[in-house]
Amino acid sequence: MPDGSSGQFVRIAGLKRYFDVSAPWLVRMLERRPRQIVQAVDGIDIEIAKGETFSLVGESGCGKSTVARLVVGLYPPTAGRIEFDGNDMAGRRSGADMAALRRRMQMIFQDPYASLNPRWRVFDIIAEPIRAFGLSSDKADLEKRVGDLLRQVRLTPADGRKFPHEFSGGQRQRISIARALASQPEFLVCDEPTSALDVSVQAQILNLMVDLQRRFGLTYLFISHNLAVVYHISTRVGVMYLGRLVEVAPTETLFTRPKHPYTRMLLDTIPDLDMTGRQRSPVAGEVPSPINPPSGCTFHPRCPFAQDRCRAERPVPIAIEGGTVACHAIEEGRLPVEERTYVANS
């Protein structure tokens, strides 16, 4: 094992990313305004084992997508480490070594209408990673590879001659998946890959992703705000709130024995057939601004169980039932774990 680290495939430790959203310098000086820093991701630790699907859920603006972009290197982290198969991604290495690492991780994007270059033919879009990493020696081989990829996502090789605008949203997302698979990666970061699609097409894409995972032994980091989708696809789930992970647990445990008050609140909002007609509790309040996050536990303004300690001290994750929870109430034992039934309505 290189670097002598743990056996996890992907390891994220103390990851932080702050964005400077201050007004321009001159405006700031004239109006005497301070710098404004968004703490999009504020210290998270995730370990993902080979072949599993780790999901990140949370409300809009909690930093899920920023984590995805940090992992694939679209943003440099402000602090913390990202290790991929034992290699520190921030380590200095030659261009060829970096390319070798990049080849093994790819990303599927949220918006299938923006993620394909409108002026390129589908063939060239899918062939781009193969060409960029020099994986194909000649034209015939390239054509065969792209044809195979198109078939794997249930399109035909003839579709390669078309332009992206000739396809529906679901088909475009499958083209996007084919491009992500083109470099034969082992790890795929999926940033809400189904949230822009019709419900009927969502299931189709998810089944395809599960199918491809089995066939190629892929590891997924799956970002979503749709709990039903997350339940369907994940091995383990991490719940994010304001740039921090509040709870990580195996899927079944998280949905049947949620611990963190925020997780319980999220689960209460899932619509299902058994509870038709019942008054359900909406998620109370709004996510506070990540520019001035609340002190202590960032969830305390919305938490029904908050006490003085929650307002003062940031909770550290504690191990519990195969997962971790960052909550003073759970740690002190004043909030009992409640059993729930979760029936996926699929």
Partner: peptide, 13 residues
């Protein structure tokens, strides 16, 4: 800022 440019960046172009 469109995702197709980000996809190209992920490849490392």
């Amino acid at each position: 800022n469109k995702e197709y440019v980000q996809a190209a960046r992920v490849i490392g172009l």
